[in-house]
Amino acid sequence: MNLKSEKINGCNVLFIKEERIDAHNSGELKEAILHLIEHGEINIIVQLEQVRFIDSSGLGALLSGFKNAAAKSGKLAIANMQQQVLSMFELTRLDRVFEIYADLNEAFDSRL
């Protein structure tokens, strides 16, 4: 999976550089988030601007990250979701679990 992590305003922003998250690459996403958390990066924003498709395993990978961050008193939030991807969070009611931001600025503002 093509992704890039960058420290911005004290948060670790994980940019997903893929159009599609499915069972073929969601395992890598899960591992990448776990790797960050294990290295003390417990405040993570996953930036999904380029992602136009996510399946159940992709949602599962993000949920795994959310739970692991929360277990260490951290947070995993999501930013820049496309409408169709957001609708999958709504269908599974995961929009009530994650903090979801329109963009990174909104995410940073809310953490001040």
């Binding site: 159940s56 395993s57 949602l59 999958m88």
Partner: peptide, 16 residues
Amino acid sequence: LPDFEHPQEGGMGIFF
């Protein structure tokens, strides 16, 4: 059905 109050990583595929 998925447990919406206590969401789990798996079990959403058939639900979709």
